[in-house]
Computed example of a mutant assay.
Amino acid sequence: MKKLIPLLFLGLAAIGLMLILNACNDSSGDSNVNPQTGTGGSLARFAITGNTLYIVSKQSLDVYDIRDGGNPAKSVTKNLGVGIETIFPYQQNLFIGAMDGMYIFNNHTPANPVLLSKYTHVLSCDPVVVQGRYAYVTLRAGVNCRPGGSFSSLDVVDIGDPTQPAMVGTQRMDSPYGLGVSGNKLFVCEGEKGFRVMDITDPKTPVQKRYFQNVPSYDVIVRENRLIITGQKGLFQYRYDDSDTIRFLSQIPVL
């Protein structure tokens, strides 16, 4: 299983690349200076906005100009230290998850993102998604994520001023992995323990509405009332509705 999960993450990342062809970010006018070209999961290590590709390694953020798709040209490398894990673009900022915190970069100048701040937390694995002025971060305890950690959590971070991010809420989770957000719904993957649907009508206080313990999940892409979920044996597509019910649609098996 440990060998299979990284392959499934790559599969979800590949789905994200395919969505680049026809996806539109939920932008609202000029505030989204560099619109996100595609849609990816929260555990993604790469993202595309406009003509710029961002890739995070374990220690850095690499930026490429892809106007000539056959010959991408590296623009800059930002060294960030160790434990860099994920990247999530939102409007004119990049949110980079690391084992000890979340970096916020302004990418108004796509070829040279500028570090605005770092939100620091206890050592853990921490994908992040953003909507409006709030970032949602899952912190997973475990041997490979938080040595000696006693519990996992979901943190809500106010990023209204991205130079001064501040936690405004936290609650315990079972074993959270990736997550996704759309409108007043937050979706949290709990690995082998299931999949949570949470109401964020009050964005600072997510409220659990459903917990599908029979839906193993590791990451999720949310798109037009559909969920593309990384499961134990492949990629699964579900449809969700206002009653917080999810209905299975299809599966891409990975053996």
Rank of each mutant, 00 (worst) to 15 (best):
K2H: 08
I5A: 10
P6M: 07
L10Y: 15
A14M: 03
C24P: 01
C24D: 15
C24W: 04
S27F: 10
D30Q: 13
S31A: 15
S31C: 14
S31T: 14
P35E: 01
T37S: 09
L43P: 00
T49Y: 00
T49A: 13
N51S: 12
N51F: 05
L53N: 04
I55W: 03
V56I: 02
K58S: 13
N71Q: 14
P72L: 01
N79G: 09
Q92E: 12
L94Y: 06
D100R: 04
G101D: 01
L116R: 10
L116W: 06
T120A: 11
C125R: 07
R133P: 00
Y134A: 06
T138H: 01
R140F: 01
A141Y: 02
A141H: 07
S153T: 15
L154V: 07
V157P: 07
R172V: 11
R172N: 10
D174K: 03
D174P: 00
S175G: 04
G183E: 11
N184S: 15
K193I: 05
R196K: 14
D199C: 02
D202P: 04
K204F: 10
F212E: 12
N214D: 15
Y218I: 02
Y218Q: 03
V220I: 13
R223L: 07
G234E: 06
Y240Q: 03
S243E: 14
D244S: 10
P253F: 02
